[in-house]
């Protein structure tokens, strides 16, 4: 067994897990954070994307023990004070989902993508950057729209209250 500790969505957690436990299973089964999904289980679909130390990774392709000592953000950690994260809001506004299964991974990938392109995004870049996230419903069109809208919204300076 591996004794592990990490900060998940700002909360320090500890656990004792089998060494072979994947990060996604630690999140879902030990921490009850079922927003992170397992889609393909073969490291291709991206439904399990979370941020580890600020970078998007596939939590089905990382042992929980590998993430010990790291800061992890999951889809549950995005909304603050009852307000959706701008990317979540944009997915809602632009109907960037149908069944919703891929959505947590899409949104975590989008947040990471927007962070990496502070100068803004265009459609071609968004489509290329979504290489690691598969959606079987939408045909990606509204997902791309949502990511572009969120990128735009997040680049605007916050209006002082």
């Amino acid at each position: 067994m591996a004794d592990i500790s990490m900060v998940i969505n700002g909360r320090e957690v500890r656990g004792s897990v089998e060494d072979r436990t994947l990060l996604v299973h630690f999140l879902r089964e030990h921490q009850g954070l079922t927003g992170t999904h397992v889609g393909c289980d073969t490291s291709q679909c991206g439904a399990c994307v979370v941020h580890v130390d600020g970078k998007a990774v596939k939590s089905c392709t990382m042992l929980a023990a590998q993430a010990s000592g790291s800061e992890v953000t999951t889809i549950e950690g995005l909304a603050k004070d009852g307000h959706l994260h701008p990317v979540q809001a944009a997915f809602k506004e632009h109907h960037g989902l149908q069944c919703g299964f891929c959505t947590p991974g899409m949104i975590m990938a989008a947040v990471d993508m927007i962070r990496r392109y502070p100068g803004g995004l265009d459609e071609k870049t968004v489509r290329a950057e979504l290489e690691g996230n598969i959606c079987r419903c939408t045909g990606y069109h509204n997902i791309v729209k949502a990511v572009l809208a969120a990128s735009e919204a997040m680049s605007k300076p916050a209006v002082a209250a």
Partner: peptide, 9 residues
């Protein structure tokens, strides 16, 4: 190589 998430690891 792969996709952005793979490239992070």
């Amino acid at each position: 190589i792969g996709d952005p998430h793979v490239r992070h690891m």
